[in-house]
Simulated assay, not measured.
Amino acid sequence: MASAFDPSAFIAAEASRPVAIGSDDFSMLRAASKPAEIRAIPAVPCKTVAKVATVAGPSAENELSDAVVKLPWDGYLLPWSGSPCPSFIRPEIFDEITNEAVAVSRRWGAQAIEAGWSTIDLFGCWRHPQYRRVDCNGLVASIVGLLTPVRVTALSPTRADLTDHLGNVMRFYRRPMPFAVHLWEAYAMPAGP
Rank of each mutant, 00 (worst) to 15 (best):
M1H: 06
M1N: 10
M1E: 12
M1F: 09
A4N: 02
A4R: 11
A4W: 07
P7Q: 09
S8H: 09
S8E: 09
A9I: 05
A9R: 14
A15S: 15
P18V: 10
V19F: 04
A20C: 07
I21Y: 02
G22V: 01
G22L: 00
D24S: 08
M28N: 15
L29Q: 02
A31N: 15
A32C: 02
S33E: 02
S33D: 10
A36N: 11
A36P: 07
E37L: 03
I38G: 00
I41R: 04
I41G: 01
P45S: 08
C46D: 13
C46S: 13
K47H: 13
K51Y: 05
K51H: 08
A53D: 06
T54D: 03
V55C: 07
A56W: 04
A56S: 08
A56G: 04
P58L: 03
A60R: 03
A60K: 08
L64G: 00
S65M: 00
P72E: 05
D74P: 11
G75M: 09
G75Q: 11
G75R: 06
L77I: 05
L78Y: 07
P79T: 15
P79F: 14
W80R: 02
G82H: 10
G82K: 13
P84W: 12
P84Y: 08
C85G: 03
C85N: 12
S87R: 14
S87D: 09
S87W: 01
S87T: 11
S87F: 02
S87P: 05
E92W: 06
I93D: 04
I93G: 00
I93A: 04
F94T: 03
D95C: 14
E96H: 08
E96Q: 11
I97Q: 04
A101E: 15
A103I: 02
A103R: 08
S105P: 01
S105A: 13
S105E: 12
S105R: 15
R106I: 05
R107V: 04
G109D: 06
G109T: 01
A110T: 04
A110R: 09
Q111V: 14
G116W: 00
T119M: 14
T119K: 12
I120L: 07
D121C: 00
L122Q: 01
F123D: 12
G124I: 05
P129Q: 11
Y131P: 00
Y131K: 15
R132N: 07
R133M: 11
V134L: 05
N137D: 15
S142L: 11
I143E: 01
G145E: 09
L146P: 01
L147N: 08
P149R: 11
R151K: 15
L155M: 14
S156D: 12
S156P: 10
R159Y: 15
A160C: 12
D161A: 15
D161P: 03
D164E: 11
L166D: 10
L166K: 11
L166Y: 08
G167P: 01
R171P: 01
F172H: 14
Y173S: 07
R174P: 15
R174S: 09
R175I: 02
M177S: 10
L183P: 00
Y187H: 12
A188D: 15
P190M: 05
P190Y: 04
